[in-house]
Design a protein around this nucleic acid. Structure first.
Lengths: 360, 360
DNA sequence: CCGGAGGGTTGACACGTTTTAAACGGATGA
DNA sequence: TCATCCGTTTAAAACGTGTCAACCCTCCGG
């Protein structure tokens, strides 16, 4: 019987909004005190605090975020915009971001640009309207004009999975040139003489860098540019990979090996090759990028370039929140991780034994 | 030279916030008029409107969402909470949601409960603080007390991937009992006499329903409950699937077939079975659930129960926004889709030919 | 007994937008 | 000429919270 009724005692649905004012009245203090209980509990006497907290519970009060934001000039929400929500790489990053953000009491406004500059711009505008405290952005283009729009407004921006030469902003990235070199280098070292590089829009920095790395490996192996055929597809998903593989099959002899700019593309390529009776890796070796969870379980376990995905999200968020908490004392830094090649069957020319590599 | 400087003309960074007031002054009108230009353009004379819009552009004004929200009592944002962001099923749903929401001018606050009731509660609180206009929720438990917290506050809630018996709310779901029956029925029809059911926490309705369907198929085949061994794992991901498969291998003879409550589990199971030298489907047939993109590209292409994922997100959002726009005239409805079995190699006892099914 | 210090609390204002009733001005008809 | 009317614009009052100067009270040293 003494169990506290949440909401209010007047039967029926709670209509009248309960704000800081109602709480104050109920607890017999002033609204200012309630606000202090919420924001600087140490400044209010223990007994009053307890009374107020009790009232808060009894009335089922929840703070009005818009009012706080309006008053404070900024919310306690950060924006996260990724290139593609359907890509496990980015959902892993997002997990890292969410974990850190929620540890520090921030909410995350998650959006996807779907690799479209226009959608990126639209979402940035939403972020701006919501007065987010800061933004984590994986930019579509290389210029980052959209990011500048925010920076100019005084909103901290950390570039995610995108290095920056500019010293006036933070960035967290993985060395994609090194990754491309690693992958192509391995294929060449295994004896491949002709390569295909399946990639998304060259406007995507990730694609451009991985290509650059592949070319570097090519040069190091004493081969010319013509030894690598490039297939550009409009998106970075499995369907696009299938399309690329079909193009590959239709036109002339197959290359010795295929390097894909990400695992989704590689899985698509793999599927079509196998359907066409092409043996992987015997006829064509294959390496992907990102080492998403599914690569290990593919028809032929996929070799891939692994990145510290979750860490990427964590570090970026820590950097961002550091800048938010102390904009002046904050020193911008550009963090660059090194990728790691995970070799599985799809690129193993000789052995076809069951993968014995890292368990994970 | 006449190119409009965005932001303001005073060199340096824009510090002073530019609000409706500054725009009004710059355009020589009152703040109310600017507001009208933004919200009911038809009520303001063409020439004034043009002048105001010009000022908006020149000053780089963006509306302060918190102020709008405060004034209106609710924002133009909807909350979406899914069980697991790492599951392609939910990212597909999220795409559907985002598309409809952005068509209608709403932003989406995307969160993941990670199948944890506590995280669900925390995120719901964030939604409440942000005064979201409505919420799409895939509840962790069956009770939906968290959802009620919102409904009681007058926030429309649509249950996503979760049917409801209650007539006072909308829900959109796929018939998981039918799906489970479909999958298990096929395995039994193909000759299996013993089954294993690999599933997540039974508190998840999806798991419970699919199990119920499987049992129903069992009964229809004239078999007893004991013909189906149940393996419950704490999460619905590939790692958990691997764990389940190991348990399966360690203990006694293998079942004729394995039915997994989702594809991530199935991929994990598949991987461990293959590593252990178990032939799929020859030794053990396997069917998953969700038909995620990667299932078709798995080591053995995975049979699976397909759901209209993207549509699920779209319909749910349309229902929600309909309720938001007209809370009184809105009639709650419970939408139930029927799933579809996609047969691939993993459950085909005889033929091992390359999949010739639907292209997709 | 008085003055001052300082913790605890208060009250009033500001944040930027939306909204409503009222004011304005030009045109029409009496 | 004046009253009326309509389309357009304005001024002012909210919305709920955070902040800050002022205030009250108690306690302490002189």
């Amino acid at each position: 019987m003494s169990a506290a009724h949440h909401w209010n005692e007047t039967g029926g649905t709670t209509l009248g909004t309960v704000g800081i004012k109602q709480v104050a009245e109920h607890a017999g203090v002033s609204p200012g005190t309630v606000s202090n209980v919420l924001n600087r509990p140490e400044r209010v006497a223990a007994t009053t605090r307890a009374r107020v907290e009790q009232s808060i519970r009894e009335l089922g009060f929840v703070r009005n975020g818009s009012a706080s934001t309006l008053r404070a000039g900024h919310s306690s929400t950060i924006g996260l915009m990724v290139l593609d929500l359907a890509n496990p790489f980015f959902t892993d990053v997002a997990r890292g971001v969410e974990d850190v953000a929620s540890e520090r009491g921030y909410a995350v406004l998650l959006a996807s640009s779907a690799e479209s500059g226009e959608r990126e711009q639209r979402n940035i505008r939403v972020f701006a309207e919501q007065r987010v405290r800061g933004v984590l952005l994986t930019p579509v283009g290389d210029e980052g004009q959209n990011a500048d729009r925010l920076s100019d407004r005084g909103v901290p921006v950390v570039l995610l999975d995108h290095p920056t030469p500019r010293a006036n902003q933070c960035s967290v990235a993985v060395d994609d040139v090194a990754g491309g070199e690693l992958a192509a280098g391995r294929l060449l070292a295994d004896g491949a003489r002709t390569l295909a590089f399946v990639t998304g829009p060259s406007a995507l920095r990730q694609c451009a860098d991985r290509r650059k790395g592949a070319l570097r490996a090519l040069r190091a192996a004493g081969l010319g540019r013509e030894a690598m055929r490039e297939l550009t597809v409009p998106a970075m998903n499995a369907r696009a990979g299938q399309e690329a593989a079909r193009r590959l099959l239709e036109s002339g002899p197959l290359p010795d090996a295929v390097f894909c700019a990400n695992d989704l593309l590689a899985l698509g390529v793999l599927r079509v090759l196998l359907q066409a009776g092409v043996k992987v890796p015997h006829d064509v070796a294959l390496i992907g990028y990102d080492d998403i969870e599914f690569s290990a379980a593919a028809a032929v376990p996929l070799s891939s370039v692994r990145q510290p995905t979750y860490q990427l999200g964590r570090i970026a968020t820590e950097l961002l929140l550091e800048e938010c908490d102390d904009p002046d004392g904050h020193a911008h830094q550009q963090v660059m991780f090194q990728p790691e090649l995970v070799v599985r069957d799809s690129s193993r020319r000789e052995a076809h034994r069951v993968e014995g590599g890292r368990p994970q």
